[in-house]
Design a protein around this nucleic acid. Sequence first.
DNA 1: CAGAAAATGATATATTATAACATTTCATCA
DNA 2: TGATGAAATGTTATAATATATCATTTTCTG
Lengths: 158, 158
Amino acid sequence: MSDLFPKKGHDHDRCVHSALAQAEKVCDAENARFTDMRRKVFTLIWQSHKAVTAYELLDALTAEGQRVQPPTVYRALEFLTELGLVHRIESLNAYFGCDRPDCEHLGQYFICTDCGRVAEAVNEDMSNAVRKAARGVGFTIEATTVEIKGLCHDCATH
Amino acid sequence: MSDLFPKKGHDHDRCVHSALAQAEKVCDAENARFTDMRRKVFTLIWQSHKAVTAYELLDALTAEGQRVQPPTVYRALEFLTELGLVHRIESLNAYFGCDRPDCEHLGQYFICTDCGRVAEAVNEDMSNAVRKAARGVGFTIEATTVEIKGLCHDCATH
DNA sequence: CAGAAAATGATATATTATAACATTTCATCA
DNA sequence: TGATGAAATGTTATAATATATCATTTTCTG
Ligand SMILES: [Zn+2]
Ligand SMILES: [Zn+2]
Ligand SMILES: [Zn+2]
Ligand SMILES: [Zn+2]
């Protein structure tokens, strides 16, 4: 069984640093400004491997002493999602950091209903099945949402 | 190319009648009450092949002279979705009538961003790809959301 | 018919998201 | 270097989606 969810007790600082480094690179490549606010929101999203709602981010920023309003958070989220640094999980109304923002992908999300963690898969079998089904009915894909809820291996076995 | 979206100008009354007949059957089999309110909401959802929001339903009921409050609509929607008569489209916060409520399925939804129509596919290739991917990472599926946005064949070619 | 369970009504409020306009910050170049 | 316009953020208000709670009505069961 391949790993998808990070091991409990892994070095999460490394996840965060790597995500930040990639974000810098993507912003650079796109000539987009990775401002303080955007970096803060991005870093907050990467505090865990769970998806985070806009208002949780708002509360976290407030707790940090920033008094920001909803539009500020939503703007940062819009910027980050447009660059593919963050993905929105439709079935949770929440946001999740992408760990391969440098390559185009139709992502698929595994969402553990027990521990709340989310893991993004980039599974070509799934992507191809979706593309093939669309082709079969003459449908032109613009975007896909594939969200799979259930129990991660840790939660299913412990 | 197989048909998925209904032809424009098809006999939609037939869709509605068939859906109602199936709903009756399912409710009967489940010993669930297909009350007036539930039937009204169900029928309103089936007015078109688009997905409908809870508040659109509320407005439609109000227009019919019923003065109902949000909980009434949400309760009917909860009932209908639990029986599988209606599916929620997560990426639209909207609801859509199922045309095969009698058999269990992992549904997939094609959503046309031009005409707004939704079509449900029950595509075993997609379902199997999802199941296989889950198995591959030791994930136990509870529910899936597969929503594909783009252009239906009619809208892409006209 | 009595009593319990299910459904709906009614009121209030929580949660998620955006519109509109003001102000600040930043890159560009005259 | 400082005027200028574009981009980002601040601020206020409000829209859109959803649920909690308790009261009342309807339906089922015995
Ligand atoms: Zn980590
Ligand atoms: Zn888990
Ligand atoms: Zn029809
Ligand atoms: Zn269309």
